[in-house]
Amino acid sequence: MNTVLITGCSSGYGLATARHFHAQGWKVVAGMRRPRHDLLPTDERLRVVALDVTCEDSIAAAVDAAGPVDVVVNNAGLGLFGAFEATPMTTVREIFDTNTFGVMALCQAVVPQFRARGAGVLVNVTSSAVLAPFPLVAAYTASKTAIEGFTASLSHELDAFGVRVKLVQPGYGPSTRFTANGQQRMQGLIPDAYAPFAQRVFAGLGDIAAVTHENDVAEAVWLAANDGSQRLGYPAGADAVALAERRVAA
């Protein structure tokens, strides 16, 4: 029976992905910064572990608790809307600590067991923001774009050892807690000078007909984890798929 370790499982894409893998008969190790055992079924194939990807000790403890795993899904992430001019560098570093360095740190922690076994899959979840520029998410996009480059390079590095590395690129998911989870962090990031522009941007989001749902991402992660091809990127959600196709056609 295969085992998957997933980060950021307390809500949104991570929670949906944990449920999806469990429904497919896998063992699931669900990482959460603040573990909640009421979100997922009580089952011998499902284990909730404390996992803060910004803390090396937490990563080490979670990897040790998980034991041998076949797939690692780096889903944990922080959202950020705001004018870059008004965004403190401490906030930018906070975003990078989770979205970029946290992903790298967990990859580094599990690669030795994958390399020794000659098998394993790393799935790094980024964003459709890497497929097309979008305003008011400059720092967030930078943190995710860094992981795109990192993952592409790492896939070449680990291919010789039989380890596959994949990218899942979710689109705009209004049903997730992306904005709510970052509410405090985003206070004051839309100065008066940017307010009219920001209002137009937010109004435009409301007009998007094709959006991404949690299950779109769960299914894309499942596909990536089980695809033995050399394919690197998997857009998730109708809007992300459209952006990816437009990028290829350009």
Rank of each mutant, 00 (worst) to 15 (best):
A66E: 01
T179V: 14
K166A: 10
V221H: 07
M1R: 10
V103T: 12
L167P: 09
G120N: 11
G31F: 02
T179W: 04
T87R: 07
G120Y: 11
A146N: 06
E245Q: 14
M1V: 12
L122I: 15
S10V: 00
D192C: 00
G14D: 02
V241R: 08
R177D: 15
A86L: 12
R164L: 14
V69K: 05
V63M: 11
G12S: 05
D216E: 09
Y140F: 11
T17V: 07
L122C: 08
A116L: 06
I147E: 10
G118F: 06
Y194H: 13
A142R: 06
Q199N: 06
L122E: 06
A76Y: 04
A119C: 06
T100Q: 00
E94R: 15
G182M: 02
E214K: 01
A160K: 15
A224D: 10
T179P: 00
T54H: 01
C55V: 02
A152F: 00
F178T: 01
F114H: 09
S175H: 07
T141E: 03
M1H: 12
V69M: 15
A66C: 04
G79V: 12
Q184G: 15
P170H: 08
V201M: 10
H156T: 09
T126A: 11
Q169R: 13
G228D: 14
A18T: 06
E245W: 02
R177G: 03
S58A: 11
T98W: 04
H37R: 07
V121H: 04
W222G: 10
G173D: 14
E219C: 13
E245C: 02
F96A: 00
A224S: 11
V241Q: 08
T7S: 15
V110T: 10
P88L: 06
Q24F: 03
V211P: 06
S127P: 03
A105F: 04
M89E: 05
V217F: 02
A152G: 13
D43H: 12
V165D: 06
A236N: 12
L167I: 11
A238H: 09
Q184D: 15
S58D: 09
D97Y: 03
G102V: 05
A152I: 00
D64H: 13
L223G: 05
A116T: 08
S175A: 11
D43F: 10
V248A: 11
V63E: 06
R47G: 12
D207T: 15
P41I: 13
H20F: 13
N181M: 08
R36T: 05
A65H: 02
L189S: 09
T7W: 01
V201R: 02
V137Q: 14
P196D: 04
A30W: 02
G228C: 08
A198G: 08
V28N: 04
R200L: 04
N99T: 01
D70V: 05
G162S: 03
